[in-house]
């Protein structure tokens, strides 16, 4: 028996989901971070974040079409994490690393938190 493994299939699907997001096609939730709004697909959010997984598997909350995050969350940090969810690329700017890490902790994105820890450690001269 033979099986064809398309090695770039996962990234091709993700690219298309990101195109759908940028064109606001089938996006089904607005995330409110302070006064900024981000449109996204619930399935992508819950596939990447423990917090969104808990929200959208809760039968009382799964039909919400807007979710307000804790006002302490930095919209810039959230934007970087949302971009990561849809592209697999995490932009780690030194000026934003703490807000990216704190937002990742809040969103329960443990692997990203670990990566931020390593980045901070590697940039610490002491």
């Amino acid at each position: 028996d033979s099986c064809i493994q398309f090695t770039r299939h996962a990234s091709d699907v993700l690219l298309n989901l990101n195109r759908l997001r940028s064109r606001d096609i089938l996006t089904d939730v607005t995330i409110l971070v302070n006064r900024q709004q981000f449109r996204a697909h619930k399935t992508v959010l819950m596939a990447c974040s423990g917090l969104f997984y808990s929200i959208f598997t809760d039968s009382h909350k799964c039909n919400l079409n807007a979710i307000s995050l804790d006002p302490k969350v930095d919209p810039e940090g959230f934007a970087i994490l949302l971009e990561f969810m849809y592209t697999s690329r995490l932009t780690l700017k030194e000026s934003l690393i703490m807000s990216i890490m704190n937002t990742a902790i809040y969103l329960q994105m443990d692997h990203v938190v670990d990566t931020c820890h390593r980045f901070i450690k590697s940039s610490d001269p002491s």
Binding site: D1, S2, C3, I4, Q5, F6, T7, R8, H9, D12, V13, L15, N16, R19, L20, S22, R23
Partner: peptide, 21 residues
Amino acid sequence: YEGVNTIKERGRSIHEIPRQD
């Protein structure tokens, strides 16, 4: 998948949704 001969296909797997119509 044990015993299955897996062939790697490195080309695009699906159509690409355009940025805008």
